[in-house]
Design a protein around this nucleic acid. Structure first.
Length: 103
DNA sequence: ATGCCGGCTCAGC
DNA sequence: GGCTGAGCCGGCA
């Protein structure tokens, strides 16, 4: 499988995340064969803008934003969608984590 | 081919 | 609940 294919799959999964919901790297990775959490990260790093991929809805298993810099943007976008952060800058995964089943 | 570095995660303390 | 260490799968020099 080429990297482009894998990326495409990752994007396809991420696109399923509805507004106001989030998913973890591991969760997304579980949907893509031969793909670990970090691969999701590297894939998202290369998301083409305007591709309609809500990359900002992907966060780490602790409900925090992993991105190195520019986490401001990600946080702002999530808050704009109605995903609140606590004092520690974390999201309540219990409530906002997206599950494919429930959708 | 090798080795090091990730937008991580999970098991143990 | 937080910190640590090891595992993980690919990307890139």
């Amino acid at each position: 499988m080429s990297t482009t294919d894998r990326n495409a799959r990752v994007y396809a999964v991420v696109r399923q995340i509805p507004e106001g919901r989030v998913a973890t790297y591991g969760q997304v990775a579980a949907f893509v064969e031969r793909c670990g959490p970090r691969q999701v990260g590297t894939a998202l790093r290369a998301v083409p803008e305007g591709a309609g991929v809500p990359w900002h809805r992907v966060i780490n298993a602790q409900g925090e934003i992993s991105r190195r810099g520019g986490d401001f943007l990600q946080r702002a976008m999530l808050e704009a969608e109605g995903v609140p952060f606590d004092e520690r800058g974390r999201i309540d995964l219990k409530r906002y984590r997206w599950s494919p089943e429930a959708d």
